[in-house]
């Protein structure tokens, strides 16, 4: 478990820089607002205890907030997906699957990842956008914004996964 810390820290820094310098810096349109940062929480090892998932989610969310100037909003959303992650993995994983140490696109498969990322990002962005706007006005605009942003986020996350996942299957357990 200890051996997983450096790789996750590296991923944290990489995703944080990608988020603040690229995805939150390039303004495509008000409809598309991709967030790749939550991938950090989604790729933590399967065995991570749930209290640690929540604490890591919360503090990494605050870190992102610190750079984006949205104190509390990303922390709330990251905490939520950290809390929900174990339930979700239980639901979408077929019984009897052999687990790697952490989610890996070459082990779990692309379909599993699209479902996994799609659902978590939908929860994440729904919470974030509504908290950010602090209103339910423009409801359909918000729905469209959430939908497009989820699509875009998942697309970039998949690119990230294909680029940085190790193909070598490590058997632990």
């Amino acid at each position: 478990m200890i051996s997983q810390i450096p790789i996750n820290l590296f991923r944290l820094v990489l995703l944080l820089l990608a988020q603040i310098l690229i995805f939150s810096n390039v303004n495509y349109s008000s409809f598309i607002n991709p967030y790749v940062f939550p991938l950090f929480i989604l790729l933590l090892p399967f065995e991570t205890p749930r209290w640690l998932l929540m604490l890591v989610g919360f503090s990494s969310g605050l870190l992102l907030d610190y750079f984006l100037g949205s104190i509390g909003m990303h922390a709330a959303a990251c905490l939520l997906i950290g809390y929900l992650r174990p339930f979700l993995i239980n639901i979408i994983t077929p019984k009897g699957t052999e687990f790697e140490i952490s989610p890996n696109i070459f082990a779990q498969g692309t379909t599993w990842f699209i479902v996994y990322l799609g659902i978590t990002m939908f929860i994440y962005l729904t919470l974030y956008f509504f908290v950010e706007a602090a209103t339910f006005l423009n409801f359909f605009f918000m729905l469209l914004k959430i939908f497009l942003s989820v699509l875009c986020s998942v697309f970039f996350m998949l690119i990230f996964l294909f680029l940085f996942s190790s193909k070598k299957k490590k058997r632990f357990a």
Partner: peptide, 13 residues
């Protein structure tokens, strides 16, 4: 733990 951290977030926001 979840609820207390969320409450803290709401306070910050």
């Amino acid at each position: 733990l979840f609820l207390s951290l969320e409450t803290f977030c709401v306070y910050l926001i």
